[in-house]
Amino acid sequence: MMRDEIEILIDDEMRAALNDAGRLSLSEKQVKALRDELEEYALLREAELAVRSGPRKKQRLKIEKHTRKLLEDFSDLRSHLSSADPHDKIAAMNQEIMLTFAGINSHTFVRDLVRLQNYLEEVRTKEAPGGRPENIWWVPLLHSLADLYVKFGGRSTAVSRDIANEKKSVFIDFVWVAVQLFPQPLRPHSKESLASLWEKQKYATRAIPRRRKRM
Rank of each mutant, 00 (worst) to 15 (best):
T205Q: 08
L181P: 09
G153Y: 03
Y149I: 06
W138Y: 07
R111D: 05
R35D: 04
D88L: 05
A207Q: 15
S83V: 08
K213Q: 15
G130M: 04
D36E: 06
L181R: 12
D20G: 02
K213P: 05
T125A: 04
H66N: 04
H80G: 00
R124P: 04
R212V: 04
Q30H: 04
I90S: 11
P183E: 14
V177N: 06
F152W: 14
E166W: 07
D88K: 02
L38K: 05
A21C: 04
M2Y: 10
D85I: 06
A84I: 11
Q117E: 14
A204K: 13
L71D: 02
L181E: 14
P185D: 00
R212I: 03
R23I: 05
Q95P: 09
R3N: 10
E96I: 06
W198K: 03
D12F: 06
I63W: 11
L197V: 12
I90E: 15
H87W: 05
R161N: 09
A128M: 01
G130N: 01
T100S: 14
K151C: 03
F101L: 10
E40G: 09
F152Q: 03
L148T: 00
L120D: 13
T205L: 09
D11M: 03
G103K: 08
M93H: 15
R187V: 03
Q117P: 00
R3I: 11
R132S: 13
L197F: 05
K58V: 11
I208L: 05
K202R: 14
L81I: 01
S82A: 13
H87E: 02
R115F: 09
A195Q: 08
N19E: 15
E122N: 00
D4F: 11
A164Q: 14
S196F: 09
R211S: 05
E199R: 00
P55D: 13
S144V: 06
R52H: 10
E199L: 07
T125L: 00
K89D: 09
A16W: 02
R187N: 10
P209L: 02
L142E: 02
K89F: 09
N94Y: 12
R206M: 00
D11I: 01
V177H: 01
D173Q: 09
L9P: 06
I163F: 12
M2G: 10
R155T: 14
H66Y: 15
I172H: 05
D12V: 15
R212A: 07
S156G: 03
L9S: 15
D173F: 08
V139H: 06
M215H: 13
V177G: 01
E13T: 14
N94S: 05
N118T: 10
K126I: 02
L24Q: 07
E199F: 12
K57S: 11
I10Y: 15
K65S: 04
S25L: 12
A47H: 14
S25C: 11
S79I: 03
F182P: 09
A33N: 12
P183R: 10
Q30A: 06
G103I: 02
H189F: 08
M215A: 11
I136S: 07
L26E: 02
L43V: 14
A178S: 10
K65Q: 08
S196P: 03
L44A: 13
E46Y: 04
Y203R: 15
L81R: 01
